[in-house]
Design a protein around this nucleic acid. Structure first.
Lengths: 150, 150
DNA sequence: CGACGATTGTTAGCATTGCTAACGATCTCT
DNA sequence: AGAGATCGTTAGCAATGCTAACAATCGTCG
C-alpha cells in the first residue's frame, strides 16, 4: 500500500493521456479545439489580458498563442485591442459570443466526463476529488521546478 | 464536501491538460514524442500485434498509426513483418533497441513527474494513488460508453 | 475456377498545434 | 537622440489527427 513513486507517476501519466484522448474527441466534435477552448476559458474568466500573459497562462510560446488567438478572433470569440498606454501590447478581450460559446462549450466539453463522474459512487468520487487536488498541486510544483534538461 | 460532478469534471480536465503539457515537454526533450512512446510501449509490453490492433489500442485511426509506426521503424525501434497466414496484415515487432529505449525512455519520461510525486508526503501520495485508480476506471467507462455525438 | 465484396494497410491532402529564428514596432533608460 | 530591451507577428519545420481514395489480399459464392 505504500505507492511506489515511479510506478504511480507512470500510471498517472498513462491515465492522463487516456483521459485527454477521450476529451479531445468531444472537443473536436464541438467545433472548437482543446487549446482554443482552454485559451478562451482563460480570457473569459481571467478578464482581458495581453497576448503574452495569455501565452504564459497557457504555458505556450507567443507565436503559438498568436495563432490560437487569430483563430478565436476569426470565429468572433475574442477581440484584439491595442493597449492605450503601451503600443506594443495587445489586449485580448472576450466577445459576447465568446462568453456564450464558452458557457455552452464548457458544459458540453465535460459532458461525457461529467456523466462518468456522476456514475461514481460517493466514496470514489471523493477519492477522485482528493486526487485532483493533489494533481493540481503537482502541476504547480512541476511548473516551478524547471530543470535545465536531460 | 460533496463534490459537484460538473465542477470536479472540469477541474480534472484542466489538471490533466496541465499535466500533459508538462510531460510533453519532457518527452520532446528525450527525442521521442508522446504518441510514439505510447505506441512503442504497447508494442514492447503487448507483444507483436498488427497495425490495426495497435491503432485500436491507441484509439487512433489506421492512417495515423501508419505514420507513427513508420517513424518508429526509421528510428529502428520497431519492425514491420508480413503475416505468414494473411498477407493483408502487418505485424509490428519491437526491436532490441526499441526495448532498450523504452526502458530508458519510460524512466526519463516520468522523471520530472516522479520527482514531483516523491516530494509529496505520504498522505497526499495515497490520495493521488486513489485518484489515479478512479481515473483509470473512469477512462474505461468513458471508452465503453460511446455515444453517437452532439 | 473465377468474380464480387469485405478487410487491411497505405498514400494523399487538410487542419491544428508546438517550436525556433528573424523582424518590425514600441518603450525605456541613459 | 540613440541604444537596448520587450512584445507581437511572420515564416518555416515537424508531428499528430482526420477523411477520402486506392491497392492488395482474403473469403465466399455462384
Amino acid at each position: 500500500m505504500s505507492p511506489n513513486p515511479d510506478l504511480l507517476a507512470d500510471q498517472l501519466h498513462t491515465a492522463a493521456i487516456g483521459l485527454l484522448r477521450q476529451l479531445r474527441r468531444e472537443d473536436d466534435a464541438i467545433g472548437i479545439t482543446a487549446p482554443r477552448l482552454s485559451a478562451l476559458s482563460v480570457v473569459v474568466f481571467g478578464g482581458p489580458l495581453t497576448l503574452g500573459q495569455l501565452a504564459g497562462a497557457e504555458q505556450v510560446k507567443p507565436p503559438t498563442m498568436t495563432r490560437i488567438v487569430t483563430g478565436l478572433e476569426q470565429d468572433g470569440l475574442v477581440e484584439r485591442r491595442d493597449d492605450a498606454s503601451d503600443g506594443r501590447l495587445t489586449q485580448i478581450h472576450a466577445t459576447a459570443k465568446g462568453r456564450k460559446v464558452m458557457a455552452a462549450g464548457r458544459a458540453r466539453r465535460v459532458e461525457t466526463l461529467t456523466a462518468a463522474v456522476e456514475a461514481l459512487d460517493k466514496k470514489h468520487r471523493r477519492e477522485l476529488e482528493s486526487g485532483v487536488r493533489v494533481l493540481e498541486a503537482l502541476n504547480k510544483s512541476m511548473r516551478h521546478s524547471r530543470r535545465p534538461n536531460a
